[in-house]
């Protein structure tokens, strides 16, 4: 007879845990260990060799299997397809590489935002002729020139070109 503790262990529903705990228990409990070593008789409920031996001959089928193994069937010479699992690994590796590359790119972009866009240099400054004036009794013109800085306006007086 096994001990009460072993009976309790047998009621554990998870087979793996039950087996592990029973194994540990068996190492410690002399009563259960003795029971496991006891040579108890078993009613004849098992299928025995003498009951199946009559008319049993596996050799023809085994021989066919052996011959099939020794002489593989000739077929078209096709390269074997890679295992499905390797495709999965390749796809996972490609996806991981893509994610790493994207992450690095975002990281580098954040550290070096790059130069600010420069204002176009070829844009002509807006100028307006305001009035006529004189510089040292010579005719001149007054312009208002709009600076690139919107907070500044330049007034410009230029003497008329005498040749024109």
């Amino acid at each position: 007879m096994t001990c009460l503790w072993f009976e309790l262990l047998c009621r554990i529903p998870v087979a793996g845990i039950q087996l592990r705990m029973s194994r540990r228990h068996l190492l410690r409990c002399p009563r259960c260990r003795q029971e496991s070593e006891r040579d108890a008789s078993l009613p004849p409920i098992l299928v025995t060799a003498d009951r199946v031996a009559a008319g049993l001959d596996l050799w023809p089928a085994v021989k066919r299997g052996i011959m099939a193994h020794r002489e593989p069937a000739a077929g078209p010479d096709v390269a074997p397809l890679p295992a499905r699992r390797s495709w999965r690994w390749a796809a996972a590796a490609a996806m991981a590489s893509l994610l790493v590359a994207t992450g690095l790119w975002i990281l580098l972009q954040g550290k070096h935002p790059g130069p600010l866009p420069e204002p176009p240099r070829d844009r002509p400054s807006a100028q307006t002729r305001l009035c006529s004036a004189k510089i040292a009794d010579r005719p001149a013109r007054v312009f208002q020139v709009q600076s690139r800085n919107p907070d500044r306006t330049i007034f410009w007086i230029a003497r008329n070109n005498t040749r024109s």
Binding site: C10, R23, E35, S36, A40, S41, L42, P43, P44
Partner: peptide, 27 residues
């Protein structure tokens, strides 16, 4: 050993329910 003990325990229970002695004398 655990498998053997478990199997014997279950057999004893089931055979007992079927009115069959287990582990006593030669079958």
């Amino acid at each position: 050993r655990v498998h053997l003990l478990n199997a014997r325990r279950k057999l004893k229970k089931e055979l007992g329910a079927a009115g069959f002695a287990f582990g006593q004398g030669k079958p």
